[in-house]
Design a protein around this nucleic acid. Structure first.
Lengths: 187, 187
DNA sequence: ACGGTGATGTCATTCACTGACATCAGCATA
DNA sequence: TATGCTGATGTCAGTGAATGACATCACCGT
């Protein structure tokens, strides 16, 4: 057995989500999260840059999925279709953790600071997609526009999905939103 | 003459932009901004909710312009065209203060916290536009998609505009980006 | 005169975050 | 087996953002 309990980072993530859900983000102190995880405040800040970041550990994985899906699209695919495939793949991944995604979303939606962090993560995803599109030879401003628009579609579809009281298919919601966007842009 | 120097809020805005530009956002304390404006730290926080907000006073005016332009579009205009007119009008307003917009943008681009705040302001603009579109009878998700896409176009065009070394026409950049978006979405 | 008002100042406190240094199980290796 | 290094954690002190409670005092109306 190791000197310390394993997976300190994971324990902090769990404790953070729980406490933010129970008392709200502002009413929770970092010391409380650390204590629930059996650690100290100082150690929290060795694992996460700030109090918000504890909710955004999965963001890097989502970015990898988006980028590799765009990269894996056939050469014949248009930029739009490559991005469509990527955000659909991301939707599939979130679908697998529906309960977790909803709980986390409720916490974030309830606090402006957390919404800010969510937005910059989404912007970072858009930037990564745009970079990959440029890699594929797409010029600016088409690359950035396609990426930003794709993320906008993802945002709107995500809100529809989490707001739905019944079981809704997230990738299907993405496809509907993509079609709605085409109609809108043509108008 | 009044008991205090007039326009405390404006003095704080100016001092904030100057100091963030001179030393950087993180290296500037709120007490320093207040002192340069001839006030105290406590008074700073009576005018602005936090250290970032001092750079975003103009956001409300931009939102009014966007919403009223959408509201003023003829009934015959498509949602897309109404939003296009709105972001073009916003571009015209920024064009009038090119130096100020560039200086402010340089400060914001240099700091992640400020970029976060910028993004949530843009998201708030999108939400206001979407609400106005719904007022005009546009259904969801078309209203949100049109608004979010419009803001995405604005973001991309803004970056092109501020990055340009020579004098570039911002509203024209918006029109170009809107055309590029149509081409992308059709692909 | 006089009392109310509102913008500002003063003071104390909490808490997010950081730097410096201490601890100590486990591992490698002489 | 002894020794020394490493890396995750703890301890402590400090800075600065943000907020609540209370004080001040020119101005304004009556």
């Amino acid at each position: 057995m190791g000197r310390w309990e394993p997976n300190a980072r994971g324990r902090l993530e769990l404790a953070g989500l729980e406490l933010y859900g129970e008392r709200g983000y502002e009413q929770t102190t970092v010391a409380e999260i650390a204590r629930r995880a059996g650690l100290t405040e100082r150690t929290f800040f060795r694992h996460f840059a700030d109090k918000r970041e504890v909710l955004f550990a999965g963001s890097a994985g989502l970015q990898d999925l988006l980028v590799s899906t765009v990269a894996g699209a056939p050469d014949s695919a248009s930029p739009f279709d490559a991005v469509a495939a990527a955000i659909e793949a991301a939707a599939s991944r979130l679908e697998e953790r529906r309960d977790y995604a909803r709980k986390r979303n409720a916490v974030i939606a309830a606090n402006a600071e957390l919404r800010e962090r969510e937005l910059i993560k989404l912007a970072s995803l858009a930037a990564a997609i745009a970079a990959e599109l440029r890699e594929r030879g797409v010029k600016e401003p088409a690359a950035s526009l396609t990426a930003e628009t794709g993320i906008a579609v993802f945002k709107v579809a995500f809100e529809t999905w989490v707001a739905a009281s019944d079981q809704v298919d997230f990738p299907a919601t993405i496809r509907d939103s993509l079609e709605a966007l085409k109609a809108v842009a043509a108008g």
